[in-house]
Design a protein around this nucleic acid. Sequence first.
DNA 1: TTGTAAGCGTTATCAG
DNA 2: CTGATAACGCTTACAA
Lengths: 367, 367
Amino acid sequence: MRVVGKAGAMSPISIKDIARAAGVSHSTVSRALGDSSLVSAETKARIQRLAHDMGYSPDAQARSLVMGRTRTIGVVVTTIADPFIGEIVQAVESTANDHGYTVILVSSNAESDREIKAVEMLRSKRVDGVIVTSSRVGALYQDYLERLGVPVVLINSHSQQGGVYTFAVNVDNRHGGCLATEHLIQLGHRRIAYLTGPADHSDDLDRLAGYRQALAEAGVAFDPALVVQGTGRADGGKRALPVLRALQAPPTAVFCYNDVTAIGLMHAARQAGLSIPGDLAVVGFDDIPFASYIHPPLTTIAQPKLEMGKSAVAMMLALVSDRDRANATPLTRSGQTSAMPSRDIIVRGRLVARESSMGLHGGLAAN
Amino acid sequence: MRVVGKAGAMSPISIKDIARAAGVSHSTVSRALGDSSLVSAETKARIQRLAHDMGYSPDAQARSLVMGRTRTIGVVVTTIADPFIGEIVQAVESTANDHGYTVILVSSNAESDREIKAVEMLRSKRVDGVIVTSSRVGALYQDYLERLGVPVVLINSHSQQGGVYTFAVNVDNRHGGCLATEHLIQLGHRRIAYLTGPADHSDDLDRLAGYRQALAEAGVAFDPALVVQGTGRADGGKRALPVLRALQAPPTAVFCYNDVTAIGLMHAARQAGLSIPGDLAVVGFDDIPFASYIHPPLTTIAQPKLEMGKSAVAMMLALVSDRDRANATPLTRSGQTSAMPSRDIIVRGRLVARESSMGLHGGLAAN
DNA sequence: TTGTAAGCGTTATCAG
DNA sequence: CTGATAACGCTTACAA
């Protein structure tokens, strides 16, 4: 049974406390703890033991104050209660941790006042960099991010114009749109709708472009009536169904901006008595965890979320150490250095064919 | 067009810079910025203007160093790529932010080495408190948490024994288990299975207890064969199906530890050609966002996630300010103070009846 | 009302 | 190898 001692808010022990206990100066303790070669192996060992026994924990704030970096990155999301964002953040957080970095999480709910408040907070905390996920980064917001003076890496976010500090990791939306549409064409569909995400989202426009490209390559005429407005949320899919059915020549297949939209659409279709994929084949985008668990399992374009998170952190870290190195030689406008070959990383998604597009015994999956 | 100036890593401006520009001492600046009454309204305004114009941002670390608190809380989760946890964290993060607190997110993947690394990190960052979500807090882990010396609030987590600093917000699992089971009994089911979560999880045991209580109150005999082991993940539901079907007297309904398990079960059932709820009625627990979007929509016990997140933060903040106040009067073992009436908050879930238990025209939902 | 000085816990520079 | 000493940016007695 361990004696706990006074449970009150005792301030944690510092290197000075250890110094006193060890009969040395606090700088020697600092060196010993930092495994410096300027301390005799003997006293080093002694001090390290002592520090351990006394339950010493270095004060990251004090250290950061003098070191000029916090080993902390800010992660800004609209909401983490979104399965796709959740997976990205999970990847970001764990790779950051593996590299000794801590993550401060801020959610903005896509409200611009919260966004600027968030940035202000991160600035005060002196984060070494910021990663922004799945946001449409408006001009004002981007300006604030720029002024942070630290590297900013955008994941699947669109910014107005590239800024000095802004780098990005994006999925190849056009390619994904192509894959999805080609898949449906291959299954014999000719009237294929595209159910969009939120308006003015560049991801959405690129996926649409991929859709059109695939149609064109297959010699299928593009029909603007088949492009239906969604929201990027489940309700968008729900509300789109009646619109699709009201068309003179309704589609036999729908490519949706994302999985959540597709799920909303399928839900509504089912309630309307439509069979999927019999009456309507559906393809989503993202491959959220539940895509394979809904009924029918959703065909989708899988984004390599883990890879994207890792890449974003790697990019961030490269930028940070870059800046360290470049104290007298600041980043050039192009931001090119040996360690940082490019300011944009594009990763490709892959088609995950499931039953929502081809049924249990349909097309490619026949067995 | 704004001139950006040297893009290099210029250190941000400090109160000394402002002091120099304003022709006053840095302490006057500090006071002015802190809106102290010890500065003439005139100079105060002048300094505040200046600070704004110069783009000043206070250094939270320096401030924390002298103030002794960081206004930062650590949030530890197993993984945020879990819809339930995601929603809790969302609630925690936004309420914390509303109160001027920043959230450091750490995910442990339920690996004990990561858990202790996480705690060590939070300690170094000098967080004012820690909130732990949905973990089985093992003895070792809890010991580490205790030694942090800051308040710890557990959300839906079970700890071995209450420690000095450990407080909790929990859903009433027994009550939830009761609700779910009563619902199935009311629909006429008598052979009702319980599909468990991960082994040795107290949540699971309490839900089981609620299940048994409801059975007993309805005069239905408890059959141990109907308690089938799951994992808390979708695969648990999947693997449980054959076990359930192999029983001499298979159940007509299943209450699952959580929604994810229920979804895995329903998925498997569907592939096996069973109809839900016709062949098997299913009830989950949590009410994750997708519960209403799967097919059939899942009947479940909704946890008040927003309320739980808010309560946890409120509790945390109360504990923190408590400790502030109690510099000379440390917390007693009971931790009772005026502001903190109880060390445990229990919230009740509510039944959300959907089609997985009663079909479109079944029971209560008939219209 | 303002300035001076000390101190928070570190690291780093410079003598010894 | 080790110890003073300064510095990081801030708050806060204590003096003026």
